[in-house]
Design a protein around this nucleic acid. Structure first.
Lengths: 189, 189
DNA sequence: ATTTTTTCTTGACATATATCAAGATCAAAG
DNA sequence: CTTTGATCTTGATATATGTCAAGAAAAAAT
C-alpha cells in the first residue's frame, strides 16, 4: 500500500478495494519554497495531500498578514469552500519550504463519488472531524490566555516549532511574535 | 409546504419530492426555559430544528461558564461530533426561553441516507458551510479587537441583542460583560 | 567565508481588556 | 403592586498583551 493510500485509509476508513481507485486519481506535484498553492481571490480547482514540506494559509489585511493555519506532512490542503462551491479563494496558501504534494483536480475530485459509493458519507465524517477541531480552536480563544494557547498547541505540535518561522505560529495562535518570544523565554528551564 | 420543509430546502437544496420524506421524520417537542437539551458528558441522540425560542451552547470550566454559541429560530442544533461519532457530548445546551423544536432521533437520523440518496452529499455541503463560518470566527479572533468583533456580529445578528442576556453574547464574542457594556455605551448616539 | 536579508529577542512604554466592587435597572415571582 | 433575584452599568485599578525600536542571532545568497 502506498503512503498516500495509508493516509487516505486512516482519515476516511475506506476499504482497501476502493482505496486504490481513489489514490490513483492523485498526481505528484512539487512546490518550491515561496510558490503559491492558491491565491486569495483566485480559483481553487484542486485538493492536495502533503507528502513533505509545509504550507502556510494566510490572509493579507490592510498592512498585516494573518496566518490562519500551517499544514505539514500528512495533511490535506485546499480552500474547502472554494473547491466545493466554486467561489473565489478566501485564503492564500504558500509553500514555506520545498513541498511534495499529491494533487487531484477538481474535475476528478467530483468524480470520486461515482467511483466509490460511500465517498460522500466518509467525506462528510471527515469534514465533521475538522469542524470539531475548529470548535476547539474557537473555544481556546474564548477561554484561554496567550500562554495557555501556546502550551496547548505546543503539546500537540512540537515538531512545527523547529520547522516553521515562529512569527507565523504566533499569528495563528493570535498573538504577536514578541509575546510568543517572551512566553517561550519564560518557560526555559 | 411546512415551515420545517422550507428551512430544510433552503439549507440543503433538496427536491420537493424528498423533502416531505425527511421532514416527516421530525417530531415537535418543547423545552421550557432552563431545561437542558443535552448535557456535557452525556449522550446526544438527536438533532433538532428550532421553531421558536433560543438555546445557549456552553461549557462549564473551573469556576466560569463559556458560551460557545446561541442558536435561535431557523437553526439546527445538536452536538455534531457526539451525534456522528457516538462520543460523549462536549457541550451543554440549555433553553434560554421556552423553545419549540422539531426533533429527529439519532436512529431515524441515520436512516435519512437510505430514504434520500443524495443526503450524505447534501449534508456534507451543509457541514462544509458551517465549517466556513467557524473559519471566519477564528479569523475574527486572530485579527480583530473586541469592538470590531462586536460590530461585525451585531451587524449580522442585531435581533439577538434584545432577546438574549448580554453577558452570554459577551462570552461568545470572547470578552467580559463589562467590556461589552462599555463598547455599547460608547456607540450610543 | 562574507555579506545580506530575514527572523528573533529584549527593553521601555502604551493600550485594550480584565477584575473587583457598588449601585442602578430590569424581570420574575409572590 | 411589591419584593426578590438577576442582569447591566459604571468607576477605580490591575494586568496581559501590543507597539516601537534596536540589537543579536540565524539563514540565505553571493
Amino acid at each position: 500500500m502506498t503512503e498516500l493510500e495509508q493516509y487516505i485509509r486512516s482519515y476516511f476508513g475506506i476499504p482497501a478495494a476502493e482505496l486504490a481507485k481513489i489514490a490513483d486519481l492523485f498526481r505528484p506535484a512539487l512546490l518550491r519554497k515561496g510558490d503559491y498553492f492558491i491565491r486569495s481571490g483566485g480559483s481553487c480547482d484542486k485538493l492536495s495531500f502533503i507528502r513533505s514540506g509545509s504550507l502556510r494559509i494566510f490572509v493579507t489585511q490592510a498592512d498585516k498578514e494573518v496566518t490562519q493555519w500551517i499544514s505539514t506532512k500528512g495533511y490535506f490542503v485546499t480552500d474547502l469552500s472554494a473547491l466545493l462551491f466554486q467561489t473565489p479563494c478566501r485564503w492564500n496558501i504558500q509553500a514555506l519550504s520545498d513541498t511534495e504534494l499529491y494533487t487531484i483536480g477538481s474535475k476528478e475530485y467530483r468524480e470520486i463519488g461515482t467511483h466509490v459509493p460511500q465517498w460522500h458519507e466518509l467525506e462528510k465524517l471527515f469534514i465533521a472531524r475538522c469542524f470539531t477541531i475548529l470548535e476547539d480552536r474557537i473555544f481556546s480563544h474564548l477561554s484561554m490566555t496567550a500562554e495557555e494557547r501556546y502550551d496547548a498547541f505546543f503539546a500537540s505540535h512540537k515538531e512545527l516549532f523547529n520547522q516553521v518561522p515562529l512569527q507565523y505560529l504566533a499569528s495563528m495562535l493570535g498573538m504577536t511574535p514578541e509575546t510568543l518570544s517572551r512566553i517561550r523565554k519564560k518557560q526555559l528551564p
